[in-house]
Design a protein around this nucleic acid. Structure first.
Lengths: 218, 218
DNA sequence: TAGATTGTTAATCGATTAACAATC
DNA sequence: TAGATTGTTAATCGATTAACAATC
């Protein structure tokens, strides 16, 4: 689920979700015009509370901000990137090379976020041996051995809901430490394995519930 | 962002996120064995607090549960589906037919969740006129007219970050009431338009931060 | 009847927001 | 100096959890 208990270097999960938005916003600014950036400006741009942004930045920034001027934009960008782990790359493999799996394998943006998807796995003979964006698609029985050999830490699950737990078990056996789960199911894993759920159905439910309420109000 | 303020029929956003997991779990059970299902059982299966599940179910269920036995599984399933709006279909269009856009256009599961993606739009001449899974890809200048004519309420944005705000403005102009945004940017919209963000970069940040902390502990 | 489960009311916990002194 | 912004401490708000009476 979305809400977890832990804190990361004094930053709550909710705050962690906001950081990429800060980063994106600051990066989008004209460097010449905004060599410095302040919490109130970011707050206004992203529709957030000023104090909230200030607290988030305080937790992330190394050098801190200066009264009246705010933070040096360049420094804040690199502090955010550092904090979000964009500089240290994690190796990942993906299981389930359907439409979504292919989309994730093809997406170039993950490398800038510190994730390198090495290859895909699938059970379908028809796509085994092919490659997607230069990334090889291999049969499931090679998974364990390859993950161990290359000490892969992250597994991405894009298989149908019914197969997700089985694939999850395989990944755990292969020494995976974190799972990015796109199947709309709760996965059972040992304590030391992390699961991050990306549940489109749940997201859609929030959207449609919101929409229904909103249309009612008219 | 994930957290919003509103309540939907007494259900918080956090609770709303849990409902699809309940639904999926109950559906996965053997009907013959589990004609009735109780909050404690669901809680155990999904690693949640018993009282939390009970409260969620109480808010969703029409007939309520019976002490000792729990809820009638069939009724609970249909109550959940009703509450989540899976029975009333919203029409949607998608803008940005790249890898992710294609994946979403091709995904069959959304129909069961009350979302019907009618067609895709893109600016790339090479794919305009083709179709993905039987869904036509049209040029952007047809967007406004078609959305009005078919009274489409939902727009899905799968364009690059830089173009997202511009597309968003187009959608608003086309009378869209809710936007499912896959670009990692904050969108500016009028009050009456809803935005549901699906930020993979943010999700990835949580995962990788978790992983780093977890590996440190060793 | 005994026991499991429901539904509700109260306590806890944590994130957001407000207030304010410090500082460039 | 005056004013904007920082960083911190306290107040508020809401979700989760605990406690307990009601009931099949």
């Amino acid at each position: 689920m979305r809400n977890q208990e832990k804190d990361y270097s004094g930053v709550s999960v909710q705050a962690l979700w906001r950081l990429p938005y800060y980063l994106n916003y600051i990066k989008s600014l004209d460097e010449a015009k905004y060599s410095c950036i302040s919490a109130p400006i970011i707050a206004k741009a992203l529709n957030l509370n000023e104090v909230q942004v200030r607290k988030d930045l305080a937790a992330v920034s190394n050098s801190g901000g200066k009264p009246k001027t705010g933070y040096v934009a360049k420094e804040l960008i690199s502090d955010l990137e550092e904090f979000l782990g964009y500089n240290s790359v994690d190796e990942a493999i993906l299981v389930g090379v359907g439409h979504l799996g292919k989309a994730l394998l093809s997406y170039q943006g993950f490398e800038n976020c510190g994730l390198n998807i090495l290859m895909g796995f699938d059970k379908d003979e028809a796509i085994i041996g092919t490659n997607v964006c230069g990334k090889q698609i291999l049969p499931l029985d090679k998974l364990k051995d390859l993950c161990w050999r290359m000490s892969v830490n992250v597994g991405i699950i894009t298989v149908p809901a019914k197969e997700a737990q089985m694939i999850c078990d395989m990944l755990v056996e292969a020494g995976i430490r974190a799972i990015w789960n796109f199947a709309p199911v709760h996965l059972h894993v040992p304590d030391y394995v992390l699961v991050q759920n990306e549940n489109l159905a749940a997201s859609l439910a929030v959207l449609s519930k919101n929409l229904t309420e909103s249309l009612k109000e008219k």
